[in-house]
Nucleic acid binder design. Structure first.
Length: 489
RNA sequence: GGUUUCGUGGCCGAGUGGUUAGGCAGCGGUCUGCAAAACCGUCUACAGCGGUUCGAAUCCGCUCGAAACCUCCA
């Protein structure tokens, strides 16, 4: 843990030295998905961003407890569906039990995350499994006088809270500005102010996800689950709270307010927010209808996709941008990432073929230091990747005898590449599943043997005919110094 | 309208008061029977207008343009 890791803290709006409350232990909470639909590219970003944080902290030697929730209750659909839960709505449409929908999309989410090689969080709590904790928190907030009951629902009194605290500490918003932005929404007459948020919501008769409470049969408010579950598993104050930038306000702002009242502590020391993925410059989002599901990427089945993009291509694409910058989707950019990633992987394989020299013409240790510097500077994965491409150039040049490396430098380089590419960036070489097929492999050996004979006899017509026919069949042949190799298209 | 952020070369995307980002594409070369692939080398830039400075793409101001949030959202 000699590395000095700096992270950008949204609270202070600057990079700060990361110092855990109880080193070597680190507590990290990240807002997970609402499981009422398949994961799209936008979901991949926070998952990958905080997977990178998780992996890097572990690499630095920290013992990290990573909590990422599953939201399966509590989100209102929209103005038109006042009081109707997203999960419940989907369930009614599909004639399924709400929990059946939750289970289905949770499993699908996990499968997509597995493909992206995202490590599982230490704990993945569900909101519906923590109703008791949430009700207890509502009671505490009421006892503290910062909440009020109205027609069976309970609301947080933002204005009162703001007299002694700062509602806006995270987002930079001022309550006066919020006041002037009052919009007339249905059901707001229950609230004292438009910006008050629900702690407990009374369920309408048709609402099937409901739990009993002192105030009504209902369900917990939008922001409560994260406050209740983070406190339960990480304590009242923990190290890192993460999520998408779109959650900054009001979700995270309200989380802070709730925790300040219930626990008299600001819940997290470092707030980290990943930026959005855009498509044609606009946020990719469910409500905008412009999202592309992850499985559609992997299968290439979407009108906006020119081809399929493998999970590792998507992962590399996301890591090539800094997590706090917006990232614009395009086929051109994806294909650039795909090729670049393959080049990086090939260079790692080439390390094994390097022949050691007595001296080194490249500074491998220095390059390794630069890689750590990049990561320590707020997880700057694009800079790290640029350094890794420098390493790739050194590897290839050494292989071409234009540079030289000592035995120990080669070992260092191998270790460095494996550590950063596989362990920290979480990238994996993707093996063609068919390539391992023994029958195909044997057939290819027979065909290439025939072609090799033809070539020995300078029978170019036969040689080229085999190559063209194989290309038609979806197998590409590459002639190298060491003979021909093949791969499936 | 308010809050926050951003505008970099053909595309994507880092950086930041004086020193190469990187990837993809393009171009040149090596290799090759040819081709492909691979590898090496290499060009194009900091929205516009002012200001501060010895020096600004980098700091300040204005203009234009874009985005996120302000309502569920990763």
């Amino acid at each position: 843990m000699e590395n000095k890791l700096f992270v950008y803290n949204t609270l202070s709006r600057q990079k700060e030295l990361f110092e855990p409350i109880n080193a070597p232990h680190v507590g990290m909470y990240v807002c997970g998905p609402t499981v009422y639909g398949d994961a799209h590219l936008g979901h991949a970003r926070p998952a990958i961003t905080f997977d990178l944080v998780f992996r890097y902290l572990r690499h630095l030697g920290y013992k990290v407890r990573y909590v990422r929730n599953i939201t399966d209750v509590g989100h209102l659909e929209n103005d038109a569906d006042e009081g109707e839960d997203k999960i419940a709505k989907k369930a009614r449409l599909e004639q399924l039990e709400p929990m059946e929908v939750v289970q289905y999309f949770t499993d699908r989410y996990h499968a997509a995350m597995d493909k992206l090689n995202i490590l599982k969080p230490s704990i993945e709590p569900r909101a519906s499994g923590h109703i008791i904790e949430q009700i207890a928190m509502v009671k505490t907030i009421l006892k503290e006088g910062m909440g009020y009951e109205s027609m069976g629902s309970v609301y947080f009194d933002v204005e009162k809270y703001n007299r002694t605290n700062n509602y806006g500490i995270l987002s930079g918003r001022k309550i006066e500005d919020l006041l002037s932005n009052t919009r007339e929404l249905e059901g707001q007459d229950e609230k004292r102010n438009s910006f008050d948020f629900a702690l407990w919501k009374k369920a309408q008769p048709e609402h099937i996800m409901r739990w009993p409470s002192d105030w009504s049969d209902g369900f917990p408010g939008w922001h409560l689950e994260c406050s209740a579950m983070s406190a339960r598993y990480l304590g009242e104050q923990f190290d890192i709270h993460g999520g998408g930038m779109d959650l900054l306000f009001p979700h995270h702002e309200s989380e802070i307010a709730q925790s300040m009242v219930a626990n008299h502590k600001s819940p997290a020391r470092y707030w980290m927010h990943n930026n959005m993925i855009t498509i044609n410059g606009q946020k990719m989002g469910k409500s905008l209808g412009n999202f592309i599901q992850l499985d559609e990427f992997f299968a290439g089945e979407h009108a906006a996709l020119e081809k399929a993009y493998s999970p590792m291509t998507v992962r590399f694409f996301i890591l090539q941008a800094h997590y706090r910058s917006p990232l614009d989707f395009s086929n051109e950019a994806l294909q650039a990432s795909e090729k670049g990633f393959q080049r990086l992987l090939k260079s790692i394989a080439t390390i094994e073929k390097l022949v050691p020299s007595g001296t080194s013409t490249a500074d491998i240790a220095g390059l390794q230091s630069k890689c750590f510097e990049a990561m320590n500077d707020d997880l700057n994965s694009p800079i790290l990747i640029a350094h890794l491409f420098d390493a790739a150039r050194i590897i290839n040049s050494t292989f071409d005898k234009k540079e030289s490396l000592t035995d120990s430098d080669i070992m260092l380089l191998r270790n460095m590449m494996h550590t950063f590419v596989f362990d920290i960036l979480g990238l994996l070489p993707e093996k063609d599943p068919q390539a391992g097929n023994l029958v195909i492999s044997n057939l290819m050996n027979i065909i290439l043997e025939l072609r090799r004979n033809a070539r020995t006899n300078k029978d170019w017509a036969t040689s080229d005919r085999l190559r063209d026919a194989l290309a038609q069949a979806g197998v590409s042949i590459k002639d190298t110094k060491d003979g021909a190799s093949w791969e499936l298209e």
